[in-house]
Write a protein that binds this DNA or RNA. Structure first.
Lengths: 207, 207
DNA sequence: AAGCATTTGTGAATGTTTTCACGAACTACA
DNA sequence: TGTAGTTCGTGAAAACATTCACAAATGCTT
């Protein structure tokens, strides 16, 4: 029902609204929100019309109510269990990234194939070997897998995750994964963003 | 000229093509490429028609030639200088991320406000304080800024980057930045991707 | 050299997303 | 209560993106 673009924007609106809440601002109009995000007000009204809560004509939206609806829609009203695959530099950065815990995402398992890493402890989570994954997914209620291994290993661990019953995967390895239809996959490729930037720089240089 | 969606796909095509090259495959049809990426062949032909090199009817595209054109379009034929702002966990992961160097992106400056970090050395790059940024951008030919600081500090460092003349910014802080029109900005918010996943999980659960 | 089998490149058709524009809902104040 | 001033929600229009479908280009076989 909600399309991809809308969801992406809802996430951003939610961020801004939470910032407003901290600053004790309790109402905002679509016009103001749009200005803050360089979007048209009608875009914002259209997007928000897809979540439950309605704005009030002549006034705008109530920050608190809207956050509540957005948290509901975006699945932030409950905790989610994560398994981190890959305990390298990137894996560690993700594990300790404060934004996850804040929104209810908990790393409950950390997997790495490197024997020198297995057994180490990160804030109470012990790093274990790949063959423990299936068991951990069941026991620790893992909802999502986060892949932070080198490209070569990515396909295999993705397969293991899916085999263990995980239905959502966030892939940081720079390789497109081919997973079953019913697994929701997002690919966050750091170098891809960079290439996007350089492509634009190139284009503007030409002008 | 090239639109956002097309660029995003071109980056992916380039990845796949480079993989094919490694495996000594020298030709590919739009049909095959489409299958590999779950895209229609006409989408791929349309996208590729926007880069210089033409395919050959009855044969397909030549991998090597196509990579060459894509590298050109995506700005991968030259080196780019990066400044990393923020030497925390995420900053370190980005700095040591192998994908960047491979595609010609070089971190030439690392900035952090924490006195205990200033003076440390990461693979030959010394961590320096924020007030050195302007000078470094000039001296080290910095093309892009990579922001990996906590939200509170993000706006300010973004402003400093822009003030120093940087025209492209990759923002990892979970806060929307408001930069001048002529600065190209990309926002990679790790928690945002996660929220996207949980939103989808929620939606499918409901059905 | 001719005919068949591929596959490209691209107008035209279709589908999707965003913006426009305006009636209806609400507030504020006299 | 009435009037003026906001702002929302949403059909309809416009802009944008994808897919279809087919002529033209090429390779392969006889």
């Amino acid at each position: 029902m909600l399309n991809k673009h809308t969801i992406e924007r809802l996430v951003v609106y939610n961020r801004v609204l939470k910032d407003l809440r901290v600053r004790n601002i309790s109402q905002i109009t679509s016009e103001q929100l749009g200005e803050r995000l360089s979007k048209t007000s009608s875009q914002i009204r259209r997007d928000l019309s897809e979540v439950g809560k309605k704005g009030r004509p002549g006034v705008g939206y109530f920050v608190e109510e809207l956050i509540d609806s957005l948290d509901e829609v975006l699945g932030l009203k409950r905790k989610w269990g994560l398994a981190l695959i890959g305990a390298g530099n990137l894996g560690r950065a993700l594990f300790y990234y404060p934004g996850f815990k804040k929104e209810g995402y908990e790393f409950r398992a950390v997997i790495d194939a490197d024997p020198s890493k297995i057994g180490r402890n990160w804030s109470g989570v012990t790093i274990t070997s790949p063959d423990t994954l299936k068991k951990l997914v069941r026991e620790k209620n893992i909802d999502m897998g986060v892949i932070a291994v080198p490209s070569e290993a990515a396909s295999e661990v993705a397969g293991t995750l899916v085999g263990a019953g995980v239905k959502a995967v966030l892939n940081f390895a720079p390789v497109p994964l081919d997973l079953p239809e019913d697994v929701y996959l997002r690919h966050t490729d750091l170098a891809m963003d960079m290439e996007n930037l350089s492509c634009h720089l190139c284009e503007t240089e030409k002008k």
